[in-house]
Design a binder for these strands. Structure first.
Length: 209
DNA sequence: CCCGTGATTTAT
DNA sequence: TAAATCACGGGG
């Protein structure tokens, strides 16, 4: 007889995303994000991310341990997708980090598009140049056709949305620039923390306000 | 610079 | 129930 697995009976899960969000954020730079839709690959190299640190972080959706229907995905174990909808029109993609219930994640802010560019342009007709295709968190979700139907999926198991490792070692710190996060001015001193990471000298990052 | 846009959250 | 907010993008 089959029984439903409860969380407390599940063995702990360890993946490349089980680490803290700063470590995961830095390791994601230079890796490939892949979206497969209608049998076609849309992909690009991650060049810009932000870490969100959970209950202590005034900019995080899980600040002060908040649990709502929207942010439930952030409490899944590392490796799951947290896709949310904002400003009445935009989707943003995060990769959950750490262990279950930590509420920490990395926001994917920009990729250098490498596969399926024609399809990306059809998904995002307002982009006039390749450098406008995926150079922002909601631009990349639009180009890759990522919406809330992918919320809570396990990116370690999915064939629709996953990562491919292009390098076995993380980028050396000398190639990574860190800055304050974008669009979180309301978070006061947390807005000043250097939790945005991008590849130094990349041509594919968001403009950053 | 300003505004669209509507789901989500927070305040009454 | 009502009001405020918003991890943004596009057009001046």
């Amino acid at each position: 007889m089959l029984r439903a697995k409860t969380r407390s009976s599940m063995p702990p899960r360890f993946t490349a995303f089980s680490a803290d969000p700063i470590t995961v954020a830095r390791r994601l730079l230079g890796q490939r994000l892949v979206r497969v839709i209608n049998g076609q690959r849309l992909a690009g190299t991650i060049v810009e991310v932000e870490a969100y640190l959970g209950a202590d972080d005034a900019a995080a959706h899980t600040y002060r341990g908040r649990r709502t229907a929207r942010n439930a995905a952030m409490y899944l174990p590392g490796g799951h997708a947290y896709v949310y909808f904002t400003y009445g029109m935009h989707h943003c993609l995060n990769i959950v980090c750490g262990k279950a219930d930590e509420g920490v994640a990395v926001l994917l802010r920009a990729i250098h598009p490498t596969e399926g560019l024609k399809r990306m342009h059809r998904n995002r007709p307002s982009a006039k140049r390749e450098s406008d295709l995926c150079s922002g968190p909601a631009k990349l979700t639009q180009a890759l056709a990522i919406d809330r139907s992918l919320n809570e999926i396990d990116m370690c198991a999915s064939r629709s949305l996953f990562l491919e490792r292009l390098r076995s070692r993380a980028l050396p710190p000398s190639r990574i620039l860190s800055t304050r996060r974008i669009g979180v001015d309301y978070a006061q001193e947390w807005a000043d923390r250097p939790l945005r990471f991008l590849i130094k000298d990349t041509l594919w990052a968001s403009r950053g306000r």
